[in-house]
Amino acid sequence: MEKVLDPRFQRLDIFKAQINGPTEKLDQLPTFEVFVLLREAGIYQHEGIVHAPDREMAFLFAKEQFSRRQTCAGIWTIETPNIFVSPYSENKVSIYDAVQASAETGNEPYKIFHMLKRGKQHKYAGKVHANSPEHALQVAKAALDVSKPVLNAWVARESDFFETSEEDKEIWNTLPEKTFREAIDYKGQAKIDAFLAENNKTS
């Protein structure tokens, strides 16, 4: 076995670690679905999940996992089971074809997300007031733009989301300046050219 080269691990007794792993109950945290708003004029889009103990911590984690590049103007997090998922439809068939539109609204605000193409993320389609997720889809059919076939919809109560507050949005202020995380910051051609020119001179 080679000597441990990383000074961080030379400081630990790594070969002593005993893991009870599979025999112990899995300490699997719940998952939260994360929706990100890239810029103020855009729309919220599903970006993935985080494991977290609650939706506030999920927000703290999502901030660095899903918005450490470019820009961000807001994040929503919601625990996975709080999202009602419609069936998937076949292409060109909208899930709303099987839904009866309803002009009668309810009291609870719901957020609706649509997937328009397989392989693409769910995007925020709008908010409706309804009495249940099923009812929310009926209201959505009447109230939202469903002109394009919707292949799948997610519906969730607005009160189940953790949303970025206005005053917290400053946490993304310096994000565009983190250029050391961007490819564009690493230009090497000039050095190569100078090196080649030097070599041509000497040879």
Binding site: D27, L29, P30, T31, E33, I49, V85
Partner: peptide
């Protein structure tokens, strides 16, 4: 890290398969 994960795992926490 185990103590950290244990401490934040609620007793009634329920894991389900994530959506996408």
């Amino acid at each position: 890290g185990r103590w950290v994960r244990k401490a934040i795992l609620a007793k009634d926490a329920h894991y389900v398969t994530p959506l996408a």
